[in-house]
Design a protein around this nucleic acid. Structure first.
Lengths: 192, 192, 192, 192
DNA sequence: GATGAATGAGTGTTCATTCAT
DNA sequence: TATGAATGAACACTCATTCAT
């Protein structure tokens, strides 16, 4: 069970750093300290290993996302927590996020792609929460009267963009997080 | 010269859709309607073809970026033009932008990577312009007193995120552009 | 003991249908409902399993061949019984015969090949009986004065050919058997 | 073109001697004096090479079979020529015949199998000729009144069996041919 | 300019087999 | 008896690249 875990760890690392196609099975096995055929004992092949790894990462992501408090406090508090959560994750597990946001899309045209399904699930989940926040916030006089649908898209784009920038340039996360929160606060809150 | 162009076009398409490692020289030659060795007549190899293609795309990008009016009008007008410009580009040439924003970063650790250099050049260029706009706008009382450095990062992240979302989900660009501009306007302008 | 038998049964089936080289140990184990290493518990390896299976089949064949009555009756009756016996066998256990007549000869150059030894034993056995029949029949005026050695070869070839045809085209065995017997009767008997 | 031919020759030899599954691509390439990838330049793969080789052999066989005189002379002369033709072929090109009669049937369950198609074509062709000969011979009072259909099957089985025996035991072909012809003559001809 | 033929190095994968339990 | 985990060697096949023409 140890060696299987080594393989998974190596896969996350190498797939994230070099891409799926750019990583060979022999590289994987060496990085995991095992022999090549063991990949085929534990998984059906290189594709299956990727699938397994992505499933794992998405499960982890969704589990943690579920734990984010999106019920209590003011509406903007909830949005702030969502933004912070994503920037925290990219700081703690940059490779996992990198795999999700860079590694997948290449094979995106394939409709069976788990990444596609998971990214859509993520999109739906976040869209629903953010829509709710915005609507309630507008109704309660907390937010300005912004167009909900497009503003949601925009916040999503902002989150995605921040993750990406951080992955490429390894910037000061807390500062960026605060700047992002303030940026949104000013744009959304009536007394921002 | 025709066949060389075919090769370049095929390379842009295939590298963008399948990634560099995911595209073989035989795929390239077939997609271009030529034979494999011709790649080696016109370029030094597959790597060189990528380099050539990226240089081409970045040149095109920088040339167009240079044509964006960042001198006349109010400061926010300039920022608005920059955002619009990028969303227009992704709509007109999604593959080129996709290559720049997805295809490259995989081999990013390599310091010789042309993509890295070009992306940094782009970053510097945009950062400079945006910094100028923000500083001048703040001084002129057009903008709120926001932290310049991080707000620049944020706008960049927003642009990157919007490009990415559009590439994955092919959304309504004009609407997103307007929403993005309004979002920033509210966040930045004193009387937003 | 049950699982060992399952392995043997699976081996007969798979080796006959796909050939020895065309059958993998994992296919064997799955078809037998056991795990791969069990093959190595009960046999020394894949080769040994083949050897075991062939020995088994040849033993069965020789045992039944021994029970064919080649003593009583006229000489042609004996020959008829031999022909009938082989066509009956191929009808009852086509896979076993198929293994003997198709699966083995491929590695025939190897002198250690059990198949080779067994086929030679079979050849000698049948040759001896048929030679005896022909000689006695000729001496007794039952048969025409045919060249014994070559006629024996011919009858053997006929048997082999009939088995093969039946294995490929699954023809009406009783009819073929009768036709074969009559064909030989006309060719051999003085008052055929 | 020379190296391609070497590959084909090597394939005929090795597939016939060791079977298709028993022959590796590296063996093939070494036996042909070329490098492994050349197989994939000239053919689509190992399967395709087998297909090519079988097509070639069957074409050669059918071409020569077409040249056998089955029109002139008495009916038995025609049958004699067919039997002789096959024994001549097995003497001249034993490996080609071996490939046809041993190598193929293993993959026989596959309906796309060229071998299956070709063997059926061969069967039909020979069946038609032999049926004609027998019918005409019986009508003309040349042959005894034998059951045509089954006697045809029998002669086919005899030919197949002779080929097989010769391939395994490398016997004196001319003697066997004469014995076979005489055997059939006695069985078929009224004044045999 | 352009290609058919060819290759060394490497790909993902399967093989028969072993070993600790 | 029986298996889960693991492996060295080999497998069919593809890679980017070269070269003579």
């Amino acid at each position: 069970m140890n060696k299987k875990q080594n393989l998974i760890d190596a896969a996350i690392r190498l797939f994230a750093d070099q891409g799926f196609e750019g990583t060979s099975t022999i590289q994987l096995s060496r990085a995991a300290g095992v022999t090549e055929p063991l990949i085929y004992y534990h998984f059906e092949g290189k594709d299956d290993l990727l699938r397994h790894v992505l499933k794992l990462i998405f499960n982890r992501y969704f589990k943690r996302l579920d734990e984010v408090d999106v019920l209590s406090g003011k509406e903007f508090q909830k949005i702030k927590r969502l933004i912070s959560f994503h920037l925290d994750m990219v700081q703690k597990s940059p490779r996992e996020i990198s795999l999700i946001s860079n590694g997948c899309p290449l094979k995106f045209s394939d409709p069976e792609n788990i990444c596609k399904k998971s990214l859509e699930k993520q999109r739906e989940y976040l869209t629903e929460i953010l829509s709710g926040c915005l609507k309630k916030g507008i109704a309660a006089g907390e937010f300005k009267d912004v167009p909900v649908e497009w503003t949601v898209e925009l916040i999503l784009a902002l989150i995605v963009g921040l993750i990406r920038q951080r992955n490429l340039y390894a910037e000061n996360i807390p500062a960026m997080r605060d700047a992002a929160v303030e940026f949104c606060r000013r744009s959304l809150l009536i007394d921002g």
